[in-house]
Amino acid sequence: MVNISVGTALLSAVLGYAVVFLGIVFLMVVIIIMGKAMKNTQKKNVAKAASSDLGSVTAPKGVDPKKVAALVAAIAEMEREG
């Protein structure tokens, strides 16, 4: 395909641009799915950590146990990330 007509060039240009977009959109969708999968996995891990740590922690008197659970889960997550 050395010497090409103007029509063929126009078609190639439009097709090429479309291929770039399609490729990028496909990749974008895959990355969004990967991001969502990672987020779900992290939520499950945090929930697991919160439920396993909750049993070993007693809330001091006058402190909301839910707040304690949330703090413990956050600390467990930080330790995991670090």
């Binding site: 990028i24 959109v25 990749l27 974008m28 990355i31 991001g35």
Partner: peptide, 8 residues
């Protein structure tokens, strides 16, 4: 990831 559209 939506910023990839600008790269395209």
């Amino acid at each position: 990831p939506k910023s990839m559209l600008m790269g395209a």
